[in-house]
Write a protein that binds this DNA or RNA. Structure first.
Lengths: 212, 212
DNA sequence: GAGGCGTACGAACGAACGTTCGTACGTAAG
DNA sequence: CTTACGTACGAACGTTCGTTCGTACGCCTC
């Protein structure tokens, strides 16, 4: 199961075409869901014949796998990059949330697929994506734990992180990038403030809650 | 489209059997998604023949419709019931969250379907469910707005409510009722405290943030 | 017993699914 | 020019889908 399309003799432009195919698939998946999306529709979206898809991926399953793996991997990568040189715990968390929300806004289709089809893959493919996802969550969990260096043990930090993930993942359900008057950065700041200081403090202050 | 199974001469037990069918369908939908669920599997889960389903509903679409409509409707009903006689704004919000989380825990399948298949239905069916969903959200929005009676206008209360919904809706992704050491009520209290006072205040206090 | 109706199911329908096969075209190496 | 190979597609495969049809059984009313 899940025989990946291994490296072989390729034509220049192969990678670019496969990337284009993955983007098209992500669009269709985000619109109709994984099961509701047909290879024929994906092919039409990518302007290829249905059979032509199989020159670039081994099957429908691998399309979803690459989309999810690439998304979590690049999320994690850009997170680590944006955290470089930032030391204040509150600012670090704010940076992470901003990175997440920006990534969401710019790759709405991919992340929608990642949020909705978490349990679709099975076996090795699921495990591989799960590992990246877990790493990303752990990164956030560490940021949350880092908020309180004075306390040795914080039993609820895991659940607090899970709730934070709820806020920053659920917003794809209601946020419309083109139509909203609020920018992605403003939204991220508000979510950070809400998590750190709660609704009262984050709204009675004019700013985002005091992160430097 | 969406011709509902109108009231006709029924046998006693008809409603009970249909309810049982809806519960079976909700289980299958929550396991494999709407598109991934086949009528044959739903029939097997309900211990009926595939053709027998059509004695109780007009089709697959109506199964999802009834599940979603009934879920939001009973959520809204139990919310209003549990708010009776509660006046303190913070306690009202805590009550609403507790009601939501309890309902989630007791009807995991149905609410999972409601969270994941929000955009599956179309036309009149979607509109009917959407109206119930909107009413439920508005109820929460009013509770949030009620937290600050002294301020006339709170522009971000809508977004804050949406973020609160993120917390209390996303937890089906990680909460395992049977395996978690935290009760549903404790979780609800923690989520309320997190929303009201933020991570610092809600965890440095030992209690749930001061409700009652 | 005869008739009507609600309920149940096996069989079958056309449609759509993911995927494979055979073939054709274009290009780079021999 | 010939050969080899990556790329592309139309056609077709077997399977599964949601749904319908015809029929049979059980129960109530005459």
């Amino acid at each position: 199961m899940l025989k990946l399309n291994t490296a072989q003799n390729r034509t220049p432009g192969f990678d670019g075409k496969r990337l284009h195919l993955l983007e098209s698939a992500a669009r269709v998946f985000s619109r109709t869901g994984y099961d509701g999306a047909s290879m024929r529709r994906i092919a039409a979206e990518a302007q290829v014949s249905p059979a032509g898809i199989y020159n670039y991926v081994a099957g429908k399953e691998e399309l979803l796998y690459w989309i999810q793996y690439h998304t979590f991997d690049s999320l994690l990568r850009s997170l680590n990059r944006s955290l470089e040189g930032v030391s204040d715990p509150r600012v670090r968390l704010a940076t992470a949330v901003r990175n997440h929300v920006r990534h969401f806004g710019e790759n709405m289709h991919e992340l929608k697929v990642c949020a909705r089809e978490l349990e679709t893959l099975e076996g090795e493919a699921y495990d591989a994506v799960h590992e990246r996802r877990r790493s990303y969550f752990e990164a956030f969990h560490n940021l949350v734990k880092g908020l309180q260096p004075e306390q040795g043990h914080q039993p609820d930090s895991w659940i607090a992180t899970a709730n934070l993930f709820g806020m920053i993942n659920w917003f794809y359900q209601w946020y419309d990038a083109g139509r909203s008057r609020m920018s992605l950065d403003d939204l991220a700041a508000q979510q950070t403030a809400l998590f750190l200081d709660g609704y009262f403090a984050s709204t009675s202050n004019g700013d985002d809650g005091g992160n430097e």
